[in-house]
């Protein structure tokens, strides 16, 4: 018997049931980032998005994001019914431009973070989070 999910999944990978959403219904990651930047390019340096590779349950997924020097960070989920998740606006009293929260993901999709920097430029990061279907009532 193995106890780490990673090891067990490696053995039984073929049977893994993954909640995949139809590709055409998912807004593309690039489009969503452009939606925040107004079309301006976003570099990938200077922003860190922490999300699990596999969400134990799509109802409550811990996420953290950090972008030193950012004025605001917007979180998006391309495969949710509506992509907006949250926007963190940092005030002058903030010590670090970072935040952690817990989000809902409807299925396997990209979680996207777009940070607006003080000089008006943008940085962005995205990570695919697998959302699985459990065997006992989801």
């Amino acid at each position: 018997m193995t106890f780490t999910r990673r090891e067990t999944l490696a053995v039984g990978g073929a049977a893994l049931a993954v909640a995949a959403l139809p590709a055409k219904l998912m807004a593309s990651t690039a489009d969503l980032i452009a939606g925040v930047t107004g079309g301006a390019a976003a570099s990938s340096d200077g922003i860190e998005l922490t999300a699990p590779e596999i969400a134990e349950n799509g109802n409550t997924v811990p996420i953290a994001v950090s972008a030193p020097g950012a004025v605001a960070i917007t979180l998006l989920a391309g495969g949710n019914p509506t992509p907006g998740v949250a926007t963190f606006n940092f005030g002058s009293g903030s010590a670090e431009q970072s935040a952690s929260t817990r989000i809902r993901l409807a299925g396997t999709q990209d979680v996207i973070a777009v940070a607006k920097m003080a000089d008006g430029s943008f940085v962005a990061a995205a990570q695919t989070v697998k959302v699985t279907i459990g065997g006992c009532g989801g």
């Binding site: 509506t82 926007t87 935040a99």
Partner: peptide
């Protein structure tokens, strides 16, 4: 310190 806009995707 922080001002957060929440959407329905917050748990």
């Amino acid at each position: 310190i922080i001002d957060v806009t929440l959407e329905p995707a917050i748990s």
